[in-house]
Computed example of a mutant assay.
Amino acid sequence: MKPRRTWLMAACCLCSLASGPAMAADAYPDRPVTIVVPSVAGGAADAVARTVAQGLSKRLDATVVVDNKPGAGSTLGASHVAKSKPDGYTLLLGIDATFASAPYLMPVQPFRPVEDFQPIGTLAVFPYVLVASPSAPFQSAAQLVEMARAQPGQYTYASGGEGSIHHLIMDAFQKSAQIQLRHVPYKAAPQGFIDMMGGHVDLMFIAPGTGAGPIKSNKIKGLAQSGSKVLADLPEIPLLKDSPISRNFVFESWFGLFARKGTPAEVIQRLDRALSEVMNSAEVKNQLTAQGITPRFEPATALAKRVEDDTRRFAPVVSQLRKQSDQDTQR
């Protein structure tokens, strides 16, 4: 009897181990889910995360909270998620630069964008508004270009740090318009925006939701925007793609939701279904649109392709920045 009893116990253990992940996935979520945002509160990424978190809370019948972890060019928050347990309880609100440029600029790469993360879906896209300090001497993008060409390096622009999306779009714009501006990096874009409003920096690219209010109240100047269509909330702001100074220039960012690679497929499927319902709801679409953000839900495969395409797109700038950093280190 003893051999038979031993065999039965072993079989029960194997069944328990085999059913464990499935049972865990069926119970998901049985505790709060956290969406980590790799930037400070108040920016576009934070706004998207909080809108999505509210919707997911209802669909998952669980608490979904937002945790802002800014720093290190948006890699601090991503690193936190990359080291988390792959169980679907710690997610990342991914930004294009977080995956396509920022980690490659660090002395030691803090995470591997493709190997460490599982895409769930694209959430939204949005253009950027080129804004200037109220004390800046130019009133339009054309005047900026004319004056910057006459005085290379004279005018300053803020960004959320080396390799941040605000840095990358301004680099692309400078190349398109054939001008040279002086970069003033900040820990996060909202900090640079505050300094620009105060006249400490001349200009920057910022999310429409952040810039719309100050533009309308004449606290800053709205010079142009980088999208392919007129902004509903800022219809008077001209498109850079239609200007002779930067013909066909279009630059739009994206936000996506990611989990730690290795998260059970059943959990990813549950998140995908819930996220699809959230992003296709009229309430969420209206909330994001009102902030100058275009809701655009895409499946995991499309989000993975965005990461791949943008990594290739930003590679020249990243390579140049790494070269400059290496030279500075050797000095």
Rank of each mutant, 00 (worst) to 15 (best):
F126H: 14
E115S: 10
K2T: 02
L168K: 00
A78T: 11
L223R: 10
K187G: 15
L203I: 14
F258L: 11
V284G: 05
Q191E: 09
I293F: 01
I215E: 03
L76R: 13
I179F: 09
V278M: 06
A78K: 12
T329A: 15
P127Y: 02
Q143F: 05
D272V: 02
R270F: 02
M196Y: 07
M1F: 11
S176A: 10
L181W: 05
M196P: 01
S281K: 13
I95V: 09
P113H: 02
A10Q: 12
T294I: 14
V64L: 00
V108T: 11
L8N: 11
Y128A: 09
L231Q: 04
D310V: 08
L60Q: 04
L91K: 09
L92G: 07
S19Y: 08
F205D: 03
D242K: 15
L92Y: 02
G213Q: 13
G88Q: 09
K305R: 11
P119H: 14
L93C: 08
G163C: 05
G292Y: 09
P316Y: 00
V40T: 15
K219P: 01
L168M: 08
G227H: 11
T301W: 05
V307N: 12
T98P: 00
V65K: 15
L56D: 02
A142F: 00
C12S: 09
A132E: 06
S281M: 08
G211L: 10
L93D: 00
P190T: 09
H166V: 01
N218A: 15
L239E: 03
T6S: 14
A97C: 08
L105S: 01
D202G: 00
G222H: 07
H183F: 07
Q54D: 14
K175M: 05
K221A: 05
L17F: 07
V284Q: 07
G161R: 01
A102I: 00
C15I: 14
F255Q: 06
K175C: 02
A132L: 10
G211A: 15
M197L: 10
A224E: 00
R322L: 04
V278H: 04
I169R: 06
H80C: 06
A212L: 08
S101N: 08
L181A: 03
L92N: 06
I206P: 05
I120K: 09
I293W: 01
A177E: 01
A274F: 01
A207R: 04
T329Y: 10
L17Y: 05
R273L: 14
T311S: 15
G121Q: 04
I179T: 05
Q324D: 10
P316G: 09
G211Q: 04
S135H: 12
P38M: 07
A25E: 09
P316M: 07
A212R: 12
A44Y: 06
P38N: 05
Q330A: 14
L303Y: 04
